[in-house]
Structure formats: structure tokens, C-alpha cells
């Protein structure tokens, strides 16, 4: 499992990195989305991998922390997902606004020397 997650994070991050370095605004937004998956997963695995141990302390008596997944990275990632959505929305609006103003979808607002 660990190796699968690690490879997945690497692939997502690498794809995102490649796209972030591309010149078109849409490539950039796609790259940011992929990178945010990778980063969210990366933060998430700081609590290590747990199967069938969601942090729901449903049993009676004082809960045993070692039987549950770490809730802290989960809460942080939840926040990150929602903020990521807001950032994407903002970026999208800037993207289409810049296209309307400059007439190009190049990230610099003018065609590069391609």
C-alpha cells in the first residue's frame, strides 16, 4: 500500500509540475489541480495509513487513541480542499478575465517567443 501511495503522489506531483511550467493558462489551472491532489495526499499520509479505523470515537468509555487514524491531518486536508476550491475559482476568473483583456491565453498576457 505504502509504495502505491508514494508512487501515486509522485506521479500526480510530477504531472502537475510539468503542467505548471507550461505557457497556457488552462494548462496551469490543470497543473494546480493535480498538484493540490498530490499535496493533499502528502499531508494526509503524515498521519500514516489506516484501514477501517476512521476517527469516530463511537465506543463506550474513554477511547483508545491508538485504535484510530490521526484526525489532525484529516482536518487540515479538509480545510485545504475547501480553500483549494476557492483558489481555483479565483484563478479561473482571472484566467478568463485576462483572456478577455489581452486577447490571448498565454500566462504572461502576451504571446511568448515560440
Amino acid at each position: 500500500m505504502e509504495i502505491v501511495i508514494a508512487v501515486a503522489i509522485g506521479v500526480l506531483f510530477g504531472s502537475g509540475l510539468w503542467l505548471v511550467l507550461r505557457p497556457r493558462t488552462f494548462q496551469l489551472i490543470t497543473g494546480l489541480l493535480l498538484m493540490s491532489y498530490a499535496v493533499n495526499l502528502f499531508i494526509f499520509i503524515m498521519g500514516r495509513l489506516w484501514v477501517d479505523a476512521p476517527p469516530l470515537t463511537l465506543g463506550d468509555g474513554p477511547p483508545d487513541p491508538s485504535a484510530y487514524a490521526d484526525p489532525l491531518p484529516q482536518a487540515l486536508v479538509l480545510t485545504a480542499i475547501v480553500i483549494g476550491f476557492a483558489t481555483t475559482a479565483l484563478y479561473l476568473v482571472v484566467m478568463i478575465g485576462s483572456r478577455g483583456l489581452t486577447g490571448t491565453d498565454h500566462v504572461d498576457g502576451e504571446e511568448g517567443d515560440e
Binding site: 505504502e2 501511495i5 508512487v7 509522485g10 500526480l12 510530477g14 509540475l17
Partner: peptide, 11 residues
């Protein structure tokens, strides 16, 4: 390189 680094670090 970035992808590899992240993968190794995660692992």
C-alpha cells in the same frame, strides 16, 4: 525530478 523526489519522500 520533482515527482521522484515527492515519491521517495512520501515513501
Amino acid at each position: 525530478a520533482g515527482g521522484l523526489a515527492m515519491a521517495v519522500l512520501s515513501y
